[in-house]
C-alpha cells in the first residue's frame, strides 16, 4: 500500500494505492490520525488506485471519520470503482460519506 497526501486549498487529499487490508490499514489509520493531530479536519480520500479494501480498511475510515466528527471535520471519498466501489456500496457508506465522481468535484464541493 502506498499513501500520498497533498494539501489543497480547503482539504487534504489522501491518495491510496494497492491493498488496504488488516495488515496495511493501521498504517493508513495512523497517517490520517497524524494529520488530524496537526489540525487538519477536511479530507478527500482518493481511492482511484485502490485495488482491494477489507473490513479493516472500512473500520479505519470510520474511526477517522468518528474522530473528525467531534471536531466538526469531514471526510469525503472519490475515485471509487470496480470491486472497491461495490464494497463501499454494500457497506452502505454512501449514506454517511459524500462520494464524488472526481477529485476536482470533491475539492470544489468541500
Amino acid at each position: 500500500m502506498e499513501i500520498q497526501t497533498r494539501k489543497e486549498k480547503n482539504a487534504v487529499v489522501v491518495s491510496v494505492k494497492g491493498r488496504m487490508d488488516a495488515v496495511t490499514a493501521p498504517e493508513f489509520e495512523k497517517n490520517l490520525f497524524d494529520l488530524i493531530a496537526k489540525g487538519e479536519n477536511r479530507f478527500l480520500l482518493n481511492f482511484g488506485e485502490l485495488e482491494y479494501i477489507s473490513s479493516a480498511g472500512l473500520r479505519a475510515i470510520l474511526t477517522a471519520a468518528k474522530k473528525l466528527k467531534e471536531k466538526q471535520g469531514k471526510i469525503s471519498l472519490t475515485g471509487l470503482k470496480g470491486s472497491v466501489e461495490e464494497v463501499f456500496r454494500i457497506a452502505g457508506f454512501h449514506a454517511i460519506f459524500k462520494i464524488f465522481e472526481s477529485e476536482e468535484a470533491g475539492l470544489g464541493e468541500t
Binding site: L62, K66, I90, G92, F93, A95, I96
Partner: peptide
C-alpha cells in the same frame, strides 16, 4: 440490510436475482 452482501432470490423457475436493497450502513460503528 446493514451493509451486508445482498442475498439471492431463487425463483421456482431457476431465476437467480440479487435482492433489492436500500442504503443500509454497517451496524455498530456510526
Amino acid at each position: 440490510n446493514g451493509g451486508h452482501n445482498p442475498p439471492f432470490l431463487l425463483g421456482r423457475n431457476n431465476e437467480v436475482t440479487p435482492l433489492k436493497m436500500g442504503k443500509g450502513v454497517v451496524v455498530g460503528a456510526w
